[in-house]
């Protein structure tokens, strides 16, 4: 078997950068129409990283974070995980729901459901861009919201790739509204069997 790292070549990364850019712009527009004001989003940076590097990028494996997890289903299969530092998750919820809505000091049902919707929209817009560019049919599963240590959130991805995929495509982006900014990490992990279709679609 070939080294899975080789499957993520330059061509794939540049293709994904285009998709990520379109997807993020679409997602910002989508959020904008949901909340009634224009939300900015920075051009996402796309990187391929080894799974073992992720905890340190997120402030250490014991750091508390919110993960929003979805499966990619259809012609292409894989996983998407949106990761937001715990304290930033509140800011994102406020950004979406406005300051008028009283929030609990913990992530309660309302906050979790708003975050699930963030994952849902982000994934949908990203996958729509994939579908448009490749002609493949892809859709996200319903999202699951996990509040726990970064390491434990990462385990979900590692466990489900069965130890085969050692690399993750990391899309970093920042949502902005006026002076507020919320950084999001967006991990895309195509199933190994899906990578060929991904690249052949980019030709």
């Amino acid at each position: 078997m070939s080294d899975p790292g080789n499957l993520f070549n330059e061509q794939l990364i540049s293709f994904l950068s285009i998709l990520a850019n379109e997807g993020a712009t679409n997602a910002a527009r989508g959020f904008g129409s949901m909340v009634g004001y224009e939300l900015g989003v920075t051009k996402p940076n796309v990187r391929m990283v080894h799974l073992s590097e992720i905890p340190n990028l997120m402030g250490g494996p014991e750091k508390e974070a919110v993960g929003i997890y979805l499966r990619i289903e259809g012609d292409l299969t894989g996983q998407i995980m949106l990761v937001i530092p715990y304290e930033k998750a509140f800011e994102l919820v406020k950004l979406l729901l406005g300051d008028d809505i009283p929030l609990s000091s913990e992530l309660g049902r309302l906050e979790r459901s708003a975050l699930a919707e963030v994952g849902n929209l982000t994934a949908s817009f990203f996958l729509n861009a994939v579908a448009t560019k490749t002609g493949l049919s892809v859709r996200p599963s319903p999202p699951a919201v996990i509040v726990d240590m970064v390491g434990a959130i990462l385990d979900i991805v590692i466990a489900t790739t069965g130890g085969i995929t050692e690399h993750v495509i990391l899309l970093g982006s920042t949502f902005q509204y006026q002076e507020r900014e919320v950084d999001c990490e967006f991990w895309v992990i195509p199933d190994p069997s899906a990578l060929d279709r991904f690249t052949s679609g980019s030709n």
């Binding site: 905890p55 250490g60 494996p61 014991e62 726990d148 240590m149 970064v150 390491g151 434990a152 959130i153 990462l154 385990d155 979900i156 590692i158 466990a159």
Partner: peptide
């Protein structure tokens, strides 16, 4: 020494 495994989920 203190041996530490941080943030175990399914691991």
């Amino acid at each position: 020494d203190i041996l530490v495994a941080f943030g175990l989920g399914s691991c």
